[in-house]
Amino acid sequence: MKQYHPAMPHGPIQEVFEDVFFVTGTMKNEFFGSMWQFSRNMTIVRENGALTIINSVRLKEEALAELDTLGKVTHVVRIGDMHGVDDPFYVDRYGATFWAMPGMRVQEGLTVDKKLKEGGELPFGNASFFEFKTVARPEGIIRIDREGGIMIACDSLQNWIEPDQFFDEDTVPTMEKMNFFKKAGLGLAWLHESQPKPEDFVRLKQIPFEHALCGHGYPLKGDAQEEYHRTIAQFFNV
């Protein structure tokens, strides 16, 4: 019998925009030589009764039952190379189509059914895909053409304003010291691992959007583009 990553503490399923849902959960991992516990987010997009899971976070049974009332999980999408531990659980449980970018280190036993690429197919309509082209580890952003533009990001764009209930007390001081907590921030561990070049952000700045749902932090609703442009200028002077 397959062993899946266990369900860890998480919050409720929230409908943050019509047919777009958001869940905050927990992750433990080793970074820079020590164990960290912090929050991570899953986004769920519904179209015609089909659910697409992006940045998967395994839910507990009661929440899975609630998920099933929203629609049928049909697609699981991997947009960040540093996430994905819960992808096998959802793919196997629902027989879902698995999407990932070429070159991603997918979990053992998973087969990529559909490849994500700019200008290519996506699991739902009125959406487009942005690919970071200069990075060491594959990373992308899905833009949904609703509400003035909703960016669904993984580690590249973050909005960790403050620590939440899913952090442990040992991790918070370390992350505070390293300046992880910033509105409309860029992922510091992602920057370290992937080493993106300024030209990716020059392209990113051409995409209009109003909101951002990221793999870490709170939903950023309204004026998200302006906020991220300020951050990008601070990091890359573009």
Rank of each mutant, 00 (worst) to 15 (best):
residue 203 R to W: 05
residue 68 D to Y: 14
residue 57 V to A: 01
residue 159 N to D: 13
residue 102 P to D: 11
residue 113 D to M: 06
residue 53 I to R: 05
residue 143 R to T: 14
residue 77 V to Y: 05
residue 20 V to G: 06
residue 148 G to P: 03
residue 139 E to V: 08
residue 16 V to Q: 04
residue 74 T to A: 02
residue 12 P to A: 13
residue 224 A to W: 08
residue 57 V to C: 04
residue 189 A to S: 14
residue 238 V to H: 02
residue 64 L to Y: 06
residue 39 S to C: 01
residue 50 A to F: 06
residue 231 T to V: 02
residue 92 D to A: 09
residue 42 M to E: 10
residue 224 A to Y: 06
residue 16 V to K: 04
residue 152 I to T: 08
residue 42 M to R: 01
residue 50 A to T: 14
residue 6 P to Q: 02
residue 61 E to P: 11
residue 224 A to D: 01
residue 48 N to Q: 12
residue 38 F to I: 08
residue 132 F to C: 11
residue 71 G to D: 10
residue 235 F to A: 02
residue 205 K to L: 10
residue 218 Y to M: 06
residue 72 K to L: 15
residue 156 S to Q: 09
residue 204 L to C: 02
residue 157 L to C: 07
residue 108 E to F: 14
residue 50 A to L: 08
residue 169 E to G: 08
residue 147 E to V: 03
residue 156 S to P: 06
residue 45 V to P: 06
residue 139 E to C: 06
residue 112 V to S: 11
residue 184 A to T: 08
residue 181 F to A: 12
residue 121 E to C: 08
residue 130 F to Y: 03
residue 69 T to H: 00
residue 8 M to Y: 08
residue 134 T to P: 13
residue 126 N to I: 07
residue 5 H to S: 11
residue 39 S to Q: 02
residue 17 F to V: 02
residue 116 L to Y: 09
residue 61 E to M: 09
residue 197 K to W: 14
residue 175 M to T: 11
residue 123 P to C: 07
residue 38 F to A: 09
residue 72 K to T: 13
residue 147 E to K: 00
residue 228 Y to R: 06
residue 137 R to K: 15
residue 34 S to E: 11
residue 209 F to G: 04
residue 181 F to H: 08
residue 49 G to V: 04
residue 120 G to H: 00
residue 170 D to L: 13
residue 78 R to M: 14
residue 109 G to E: 04
residue 208 P to M: 05
residue 103 G to W: 05
residue 196 P to T: 13
residue 107 Q to T: 07
residue 131 E to N: 13
residue 5 H to T: 15
residue 185 G to Q: 13
residue 117 K to H: 09
residue 10 H to P: 09
residue 154 C to S: 13
residue 187 G to L: 07
residue 200 D to S: 13
residue 230 R to E: 11
residue 205 K to N: 15
